[in-house]
């Protein structure tokens, strides 16, 4: 059941993104940026928590999760440290994705040559 929910959730988000892309003149960059902001918004409304609890990794692998993690970091940072916490907490949870992407890409860039 969990697996089905993960499939449906992630699939439906991608479906909407594709419909967006096909019916407007936006580029994939616009659409991913929009979905990141949308994820942060869903975090604010309190919906993304629920999505993660029923769709699991289906909700945590799409880019909206990045926005949600940023929101969560800043919000929880404020609870701990006040205004300074907004700044120190913002990247706390999303650090995993950014650091991972940067490190893996850099090491692989050194090893591999571009192909055309």
């Amino acid at each position: 059941m969990n697996f089905l929910c993960a499939f449906l959730f992630s699939g439906i988000f991608c479906l909407f993104a594709q419909i967006f892309l096909d019916n407007t003149k936006l580029t994939p960059g616009h659409v991913t940026s929009f979905f990141t902001v949308f994820g942060a918004f869903l975090g604010l409304v309190g919906l993304y928590d629920k999505f993660i609890s029923f769709a699991g990794a289906g909700a945590t692998t799409i880019i909206s999760n990045f926005g949600y993690m940023l929101y969560k970091g800043a919000y929880l940072g404020f609870q701990e440290n006040g205004i300074l916490g907004l700044f120190t907490g913002l990247l706390q949870y999303s650090s995993c994705a950014i650091t991972g992407a940067v490190l893996f890409s850099f090491v692989l860039t050194l090893i591999f040559k571009p192909k055309d």
Binding site: Q18, G58, T60
Partner: peptide
């Protein structure tokens, strides 16, 4: 467009599914 949307749905869903399995 409908084919694009279907492919996006299936592949995106499959990635989410694999991630959940993993």
């Amino acid at each position: 467009k409908s084919k694009n949307a279907l492919v996006a749905f299936l592949v995106g869903g499959f990635i989410g599914f694999l991630a959940e399995v993993f």
